[in-house]
Amino acid sequence: MGKFGQNSEPEDEAAIDISPLIDCIFILLIFFIVTTTFVEETGIEVDKPQAASAGDLEKQSVMIAVTAEGQIVYGGKEIGMSGVQSTVRRFVEKDESTPVIIQVDEKAPSGLFVRVIDEAKLGGAAKVSVATQK
């Protein structure tokens, strides 16, 4: 018989293989990264007018802001009136159905707002909308 406290059979160590779990987590992570769509905001806060017929934003859109001071902003940078047409054209070349959404401050000059709409349409935008509050 052997010494007291010693087993004659070798002990099996219990181990959990976590590599399949890690593979599943990476696959889920890749799935969420690929299916996520990002909406690029204008980068500034404007006081939008209210409208009863307001709807939801589309996921893939070009958002341009017009401030009360008359600045025209896209992606947090002032692009000016001359930058509207080229910015819109860049997105419309990729997808012709990309809508342009203009966030205009209530106190912004209406003439400037109309010029931004015209520049967006000259850039090739088929659909130009105005962002409002419900």
Rank of each mutant, 00 (worst) to 15 (best):
V88P: 04
I101S: 04
Q6Y: 09
R89A: 15
M63K: 05
S110E: 14
Q6T: 08
K94T: 03
D95C: 01
T87K: 03
A54S: 12
M63P: 00
Q71V: 01
A51T: 03
L112Q: 13
Y74R: 08
A108Y: 05
G83K: 02
G111S: 13
A68P: 06
E40S: 08
K77E: 15
I101A: 05
A68D: 14
I72L: 07
I30G: 12
P109E: 15
I18M: 15
V100G: 04
V104H: 03
I18N: 09
D56S: 12
A120N: 08
I25Q: 07
F32G: 09
R90L: 04
D12V: 15
K59M: 06
P99V: 04
K59A: 11
S97L: 09
G43D: 07
L21D: 11
E106Y: 08
V84G: 02
L28W: 06
K48E: 09
S53I: 05
K77G: 01
K59S: 10
E9W: 04
E40D: 03
I44A: 02
V46C: 10
A15F: 15
Q6V: 07
E119Q: 15
V88L: 09
I25Y: 14
I18P: 05
L21P: 03
D17V: 07
K94R: 09
E106F: 02
I79A: 07
A131V: 03
K77P: 00
I102F: 10
V88S: 05
E96D: 13
P10S: 09
I22T: 11
Q6E: 11
A51V: 00
I30D: 14
N7L: 08
L112F: 04
T98Y: 01
A126D: 13
E96N: 10
Q133C: 02
G43P: 01
S129I: 00
Q103R: 12
T36N: 14
F113R: 11
D95E: 12
V62L: 10
F113D: 02
R90S: 13
D56M: 14
E58P: 07
T36Y: 11
F31S: 12
A131E: 14
G70E: 02
E58C: 02
M1W: 09
Q50R: 11
T36P: 05
L57H: 01
A68G: 12
V84F: 01
S19F: 06
S110F: 08
I27R: 13
G111T: 09
E40Q: 09
I117T: 11
S19E: 13
A54C: 06
G124M: 05
G123E: 12
R90D: 12
E106W: 03
I101F: 01
E41Y: 03
E41S: 03
A125V: 06
F91Q: 08
A52G: 07
D118G: 08
G111N: 10
G80I: 07
E69Q: 15
F4M: 05
G2K: 11
E41N: 05
K59C: 00
I102C: 06
F91D: 10
A68L: 06
S86Q: 13
A54Q: 01
V84S: 00
S97T: 13
G123V: 12
E11F: 10
A126G: 15
A52N: 06
M1F: 09
I64W: 00
A15E: 14
